[in-house]
Each structure stands twice: as structure tokens, then as C-alpha cells.
Amino acid sequence: METTTFPTALGVFGLGWTETGLARVLLPDDDEAALRERLGRGGAEAGDPPIWVETLMGRIEDYADGIAVDFSGVPLDLSGLPEFHRRAYQLLLGYGWGQVTTYGEMARALGDVGLSRAVGQAMGANPMPLVIPCHRVLASNGKAGGFSAPGGAATKQKMLALEGVTIGAPPGQLNFGF
């Protein structure tokens, strides 16, 4: 895997890609050295971004500036991930700017409301947050729930606020930002 970092209005992001597609996104961390160390795990090395990665970097910069961005066309390398995680990520890719869902709604869409915890585990293991928008998955009460990126739930809330979503809205109003 090849990697790069780049600055945005939210901080420095890290990206990793393979010949197949995007394999890793690291959200900004207050400790840039730690971000670079995490990005290099597993033998990843700094590389020159191909055009599609440069385009993605521009879209992430736009996102950080509060501009509505669609990441649905980004090629993804999901190899080596559990089948359930791939299914959950594929479902989540259908949620665009400012749209949210819950762990339970995703579980039902994946075949069984009892899979809510499994959905949460898949979101926590998401190797490409933002592009696979796990920040758009909320707890059933409309609250943020967990978020494994630096800054935790506060980062999730900040990302959703960029998209005009108010956390804690009544469940029927989540997609409308009331």
C-alpha cells in the first residue's frame, strides 16, 4: 500500500491506496507524528498519489470546508475484510451528505435487527471513515453513539454539523436536521 498525508481545514488527513483502490483513510489527529505512524503500519510506504487519489484529496478538502461532497465513485479496496463488514459498508455508501441512519436500521436492512452490535463493530473497524461514512450512523435515540476516530463522538458530531445534521433530534427528523 502507498500512502500520503495532506492538510485540510479540519487538520491533516492520511490516505492509503493499492492498485485496486482506496484502502485506508485516517481522520485528523492532534498528533501528526502518530497519524503518520498509524498510516505506515503493515509495511505501507509514502507514494506519489495517482490522479484519482489527487481528485479524492480535493474532495476531502472541499468536505473540510463544508462543501457537499459525494464519495460514492471512489474505488475501494475491501479485500481482506469480513463479508459482513463489506455488506454493511456497501449499504452505508448509499447515505449521502446530511443523511443519517441508525445501527438498528442498518441491521434490519442487512437482514436482522439483532445484528445491531455487529453493525457497530463493522463501523468501529471501518478502514476508510468519511469515504465510507460511518459518522452517519447514530444510536437509536438520535445521539452520536460511538466513534473510533481521534476525538471520538465529538469528531463525529463535528463532521455531522458540517453536513447540517443536529445530533439528538427526534428519530423521525434525523434526515431533515430539525
Rank of each mutant, 00 (worst) to 15 (best):
1 M>Y: 03
3 T>D: 02
3 T>S: 06
4 T>Y: 04
7 P>S: 04
8 T>G: 01
8 T>W: 00
9 A>E: 15
13 F>T: 00
14 G>L: 03
19 E>I: 04
20 T>H: 10
23 A>P: 12
25 V>Y: 00
25 V>F: 00
26 L>H: 02
28 P>H: 01
29 D>I: 02
31 D>P: 13
33 A>P: 02
34 A>H: 13
35 L>C: 08
35 L>W: 00
38 R>E: 10
40 G>M: 10
42 G>N: 08
43 G>M: 13
44 A>P: 10
46 A>K: 10
46 A>P: 15
48 D>R: 13
49 P>N: 08
50 P>C: 09
51 I>T: 15
51 I>D: 15
54 E>P: 00
57 M>V: 14
58 G>M: 02
59 R>L: 15
60 I>L: 15
63 Y>C: 10
63 Y>H: 08
63 Y>N: 06
66 G>D: 13
67 I>N: 03
68 A>N: 11
71 F>W: 06
73 G>L: 12
73 G>Y: 01
73 G>E: 14
74 V>Y: 02
79 S>L: 07
83 E>I: 13
83 E>D: 14
83 E>T: 15
84 F>P: 04
85 H>N: 11
85 H>V: 07
90 Q>W: 01
92 L>D: 06
92 L>V: 08
93 L>H: 06
94 G>K: 13
97 W>Y: 10
99 Q>W: 06
99 Q>K: 14
101 T>S: 11
103 Y>P: 02
103 Y>T: 05
103 Y>C: 03
108 R>G: 05
110 L>E: 05
111 G>V: 06
111 G>I: 09
115 L>Q: 15
118 A>Q: 14
119 V>R: 00
120 G>T: 05
121 Q>W: 09
123 M>R: 04
123 M>W: 09
124 G>I: 04
124 G>P: 03
124 G>F: 05
125 A>M: 06
125 A>I: 07
125 A>C: 12
126 N>L: 13
131 V>E: 00
131 V>H: 00
132 I>P: 07
134 C>T: 13
134 C>W: 01
134 C>K: 02
135 H>S: 03
136 R>H: 15
137 V>H: 05
138 L>P: 01
139 A>D: 09
140 S>I: 15
141 N>R: 11
142 G>L: 10
142 G>H: 03
142 G>Y: 08
143 K>A: 07
145 G>P: 13
147 F>L: 02
148 S>P: 12
148 S>C: 09
150 P>Y: 00
154 A>I: 11
155 T>G: 00
156 K>S: 04
156 K>I: 03
157 Q>D: 03
158 K>E: 06
158 K>T: 12
158 K>N: 07
160 L>G: 13
161 A>Q: 14
161 A>Y: 01
161 A>S: 10
163 E>A: 08
164 G>I: 13
166 T>D: 12
167 I>G: 06
169 A>P: 12
172 G>D: 14
173 Q>M: 12
176 F>T: 14
176 F>K: 12
177 G>M: 07
178 F>I: 04
